[in-house]
């Protein structure tokens, strides 16, 4: 049976060293201004010395299946694009910031142009068959991007075989960023 393309990102937290290459690649690819970020790295240290554990998490828009930002947008500027990627149409955006308030992952910001911007999974690259810039540049290959509905794809395989987590799923947003343990 034919299934719609559903782009997701799976991140191997154990392989991430928190180098921030994904952040710089994104900034360069998408011309993200200083003080803003479409993706970022969180480092969580848990425990008391010498019993410590650490996890690095590359963060970005979760491209939710039930996106609260899209539901909150009064003009239709925030919309779901091909492959389930959540996008913003700058020509429709009024900069009312309802989507920023609605996003539980704080993934959005207002550009100097006055319109809202965020991670697009590098939709312009994906349309040409390339990977998002952050995935392409990751030196430890801990970021994996692809169609979760393609049973022969790498990401579908990882999600089928590896234990994984998603963030704030109790809000019912169905986020499409998976952290592999």
């Amino acid at each position: 049976m034919f299934k719609k393309i559903r782009y997701v990102m799976a991140i191997e937290t154990a392989k991430c060293v928190g180098c921030g290459a994904c952040v710089f690649a994104c900034k360069q690819e998408n011309d993200v201004p200083v003080g803003f970020a479409r993706d970022w790295v969180e480092q969580e240290v848990h425990g008391t010395y010498p019993v410590l554990s650490m996890e690095n998490r590359s963060q970005r828009c979760q491209h939710c299946d039930r996106p609260p930002c899209v539901y909150a947008c009064p003009t239709g500027a925030s919309h779901v694009g091909p492959g389930g990627i959540t996008l913003v149409d700058g020509d429709l955006c009024t900069g009312c910031k309802a989507c920023i308030a609605a996003c539980p992952y704080d993934a959005r910001y207002v550009t100097s142009r006055g319109v809202v911007d965020k991670c697009t999974f590098c939709a312009h690259r994906v349309a040409q068959g390339m990977e998002p810039a952050c995935v392409a540049v990751c030196p430890t290959s801990c970021l994996h991007f692809g169609d979760a509905n393609d049973p022969n794809g790498e990401v579908a395989g990882l999600l089928a075989t590896r234990r994984h987590r998603r963030q704030k799923t109790h809000l019912g947003t169905e986020p499409q960023l998976y952290w592999l343990d």
Partner: peptide, 19 residues
């Protein structure tokens, strides 16, 4: 409060039922 004031009329060119 709008960050992109030229687009203000966009509010009245559509109706978004979930918003």
């Amino acid at each position: 409060d709008l960050e992109h004031k030229p687009n203000v009329l966009r509010f009245y060119l559509t109706f978004q039922v979930t918003s």
